[in-house]
Design a protein around this nucleic acid. Structure first.
Lengths: 227, 227
DNA sequence: AGCACACATGACCACACGGTCACATGACCA
DNA sequence: TGGTCATGTGACCGTGTGGTCATGTGTGCT
C-alpha cells in the first residue's frame, strides 16, 4: 500500500540495502529528524530513485513500520498459538506468546523495534497520526474481547475493568517490555543500539526466566479472587 | 541551572507568557520539530530576548521539563506521604499517592505532562540524552530500594525481581497511567489536547475509582503469596 | 548632563530539509 | 538501427531552522 510497485520489483540486494538504511535512520532518530538524505546516501541510491519507490518520507516510514515490521515480527509470534488463545479466551496464554515473541524480536531486530515504537510518539504528519490511532483502536478492541471472554470463562477476575487492562497489556507487551529487558541486561535500548558489543544477548534460559517473572505478576494481578 | 538569571528576574507576567508558549510548543511537537520561532512569536518577545534568557533551545526545554514541571508536579504529590511511604517501605502506599498525583496533574496540565513525557522519546541532543539517562537511573534506584525494603518487611513477594518491578512501576505511574486515563475518558492524550471541550474531566469519584482499579491489579500482582 | 550597563530587537547567517524535474541510461522490441 | 519506455540521477528549489550580533532603548548612578 505505502510502497510503489517500482520498489516491489527491485532486485533483492538493492531492496535490502534500502530497507537496512531506512531501519538504521528511523531507529536512530525521531521521525521528524530522520533524514531522507542520509538514507539515500547510506543505501547508495540517488534521491530521485527513492521518490520513485515511495511517495514521500511518510510513505517510506509507514511501509517500514506497518508492513515490513509486522511481517518480520509475525515470524516470532506463532499464528496457531495466537488463534488458540483467542478461541479459548486465554488472555494469559496469549500474553505469554506475545511477550516471548516480542523479546526475541527485539533482540534480533533492535533497530526495527525502536523504529516501530516511535510510531507512538506522534508527529505532525496526518497519515502517521491516522496509523497510530488505528493501531491503538485495534489493540483496544482485541484486548477488550479477550478480557470479556476470559471473564465469562472464569479465567479472569470479573471485577476487572477492560478499559484498564487494555492499556496495561499494550504497555506490558510493548514499551514496558523493552525497557524491562534492557534493565535486565543492564543497559537501555539506546545503549544497546549504540554499543551492541558491550552487552551479551540474553540466553534462552534468561528469556524464559524473564517472561516467567513478568507473567507471575500479571497472572496474580488479573486472576479471579480466591474464594 | 538551565535558565539564565535574566529569565529569573523577568516580571511575572512576561515570564508566564514565555512559559505558557513553551509548554504549548513542546507539548504539541516532538523536541526536534518544536520551533523557537513559534515560541517567541506566541510569547510576544523577540528572538534575541529568548537567547538572553536561555543558552539555546535545549536549555529552554530542559528547564521546562526538569525544573518547572517538577516544581508544578510537586504540588500534586504530598512530600509527607512520600516520606512516610519511603520510611516504612510501603511501595503500594507510595504508588497510590504517586498515581493519584499523576492523574490530577495530567488533568490540570495536560500540555506540560505531554511535554515532559516527550523527554523519554530521545533525541540527538546530548544534554537531553544525559537528562533522560539520569531520570531513568534515579527512578530505578528509588524503586529498587522500595522493593527491597518492602520485601524485608514482608509487604512484597520475596520472589519479586526488583529489576522487573522497577520498569513496571515507572510505566504504571507514567505513560501507561496517562494512556489508561485517556481510554477511560474515551479519548487519547492528543485528542484531549486538541479538543479539550469535547470530553468532560473525570470527577473526583471517577479518579478514585480509576486509581483503585489499577491499584487492585498491582496489589495482587505484587503481594506475597498466600501461605 | 554624561556615562555605563543591562536588556530588547529583528535582520541576517549558514545550513539542512523534503521534494522536483529535465535529462541520462540502458534494456527490449521492431 | 532506431524508437520506446521504465528506471536512475543529482543539481536545484523554496522553506524553515537554530543561532548571532550590531544597534537601539531605557534606567539609574555620578
Amino acid at each position: 500500500m505505502a510502497a510503489k510497485t517500482t520498489f516491489e520489483n527491485l532486485p533483492e540486494e538493492k531492496r535490502a540495502r534500502i530497507v537496512e538504511a531506512a531501519i538504521e535512520e528511523f531507529g536512530a532518530h525521531p521521525y521528524a529528524s530522520a533524514s531522507t538524505n542520509r538514507i539515500v546516501k547510506a543505501a547508495g541510491i540517488s534521491k530521485g530513485s527513492m521518490y520513485q519507490y515511495f511517495e514521500n518520507k511518510s510513505a517510506l516510514y509507514r511501509w517500514l513500520v506497518w508492513e515490513h515490521a509486522a511481517q518480520v515480527k509475525g515470524r516470532y509470534v506463532s499464528a496457531k498459538a495466537y488463534g488458540e488463545a483467542m478461541e479459548t479466551g486465554d488472555l494469559l496464554g496469549f500474553l505469554r506468546v506475545a511477550m516471548r515473541g516480542g523479546v526475541v524480536f527485539t533482540l534480533d531486530h533492535p533497530r526495527l523495534a525502536r523504529a516501530a515504537l516511535r510510531l507512538m510518539e506522534g508527529s505532525a504528519d496526518e497519515e502517521l497520526g491516522r496509523m497510530k490511532e488505528e493501531h491503538l483502536r485495534m489493540g483496544e478492541q482485541v484486548m477488550r474481547m479477550f478480557v470479556e471472554k476470559g471473564q465469562r470463562m472464569g479465567k479472569l477476575d470479573p471485577d476487572l475493568d477492560p478499559e484498564l487492562v487494555s492499556p496495561l497489556i499494550a504497555h506490558a507487551t510493548g514499551p514496558m517490555l523493552v525497557d524491562a529487558m534492557m534493565v535486565k541486561m543492564g543497559t537501555t535500548l539506546d545503549g544497546y543500539l549504540n554499543r551492541p558489543e558491550e552487552w551479551t544477548r540474553m540466553t534462552e534460559a534468561e528469556i524464559d526466566g524473564f517472561v516467567d517473572g513478568v507473567m507471575m505478576i500479571l497472572e496474580r494481578g488479573l486472576a479471579p479472587k480466591p474464594a
